[in-house]
Structures are given as C-alpha cells and as structure tokens.
C-alpha cells in the first residue's frame, strides 16, 4: 500500500523569498520619510547642550544653520572654536554675506520668516556666540533657535 511506502529522500523545498524584498522596501520608505539628508559635512565638533523647554522647528526649508565648535581636525585647524557656514569654515564677518545668500535662495514671500539655527557645542565660550548674534542683529536676522537636545531633568 502506498501508505506504508518507504519514505524517499525528500528535498527541502525552496523558500519563497519574494516577500522579503517587500519588507525591506517598506523599511526603506519608512527611513526615507522620517529622516533628512544631512545638510553639511561637519568640520567642527558639535554636541548641543540639553534643555527641557524645547520647541520643534517647523518648516525646515526656512532654516539656515550656523555651526560653532572646536575643529575635528585639531592638527590642521587648531583647537580654537570656529564657525562653519555651509561646507566651509567662516569668519564672523562672512555671516552677513551668508545670511544674504540664504535669503536670496528663498522665495520672496518666505524671506521674513527665515530662522537661523545656531548649532553650538556646549563647551564653547559665549564670546564667539555673542559675536555671531551681534552680526545677525546687524543684518536683521532676528529669529534664532539655539539647538538643544530634549532632557527630562536639567540637574542630574
């Protein structure tokens, strides 16, 4: 009888992996939606301080970034805190030109709403930050945002 037939050597059936790619694609789209392409390669070390009263920045396309921190490559650029504008080091005097170019890149009706996000390392002294702020006041970029990380308790 066939029921009692001796078992033949069976091959393991090939796994159907076509749904795996669907899952990975789902992951891909998920990450594409929640992340943003990095704006610039950082030349300075920026570890933003922590704060509790944090607001989120809406309308990303209206934000321009100024990074301040110690250069990552200390042998080449020294250990004094430097300013980074876009993809290169800048000086305090170049900030007004930087803001002007950022303004020119936006449509005219959006220009009054431009926000300057200051991404400053927490070990930096206030002197350079104050200079930057004075420069921003001169060109009329009054809206700023001190970038910070969310924390529950400031005094740990």
């Amino acid at each position: 009888m066939s029921r009692f037939r001796k078992e033949k050597k069976k091959e393991v059936p090939a796994l159907n992996t076509s749904s795996m790619s669907d899952i990975i694609f789902m992951f891909l789209f998920f990450f594409m939606v929640i992340t943003t392409i990095r704006e610039a390669t950082l030349f300075v070390k920026v570890q933003v301080p922590a704060a509790t009263e944090i607001q989120k920045l809406e309308r990303k396309n209206l934000v321009s970034y100024i990074y301040i921190g110690t250069p990552i490559n200390i042998q080449m650029y020294g250990s004094e805190p430097r300013i980074q504008l876009n993809d290169q080091f800048g000086t305090v005097e170049q900030i007004s030109a930087f803001i002007e170019s950022e303004r020119a890149a936006r449509p005219e009706q959006d220009r009054p709403f431009l926000i300057t996000s200051l991404k400053v390392d927490k070990d930096v002294r206030m002197g350079i930050v104050t200079d930057v702020k004075q420069e921003l006041r001169k060109v009329g970029a009054y809206k700023i945002n001190y970038s910070a990380n969310k924390t529950d308790n400031l005094f740990k």
């Binding site: 933003v48 704060a51 009263e53 944090i54 607001q55 989120k56 920045l57 990303k60 934000v63 926000i115 996000s117 702020k133 921003l136 006041r137 970029a141 009054y142 809206k143 700023i144 945002n145 001190y146 970038s147 910070a148 990380n149 969310k150």
Partner: peptide
Amino acid sequence: DKGLSRML
C-alpha cells in the same frame, strides 16, 4: 531640529 527659539 529642536531647541530654544528666541527673537533677537
């Protein structure tokens, strides 16, 4: 992109 927003 979060932080303390201020007006200068």
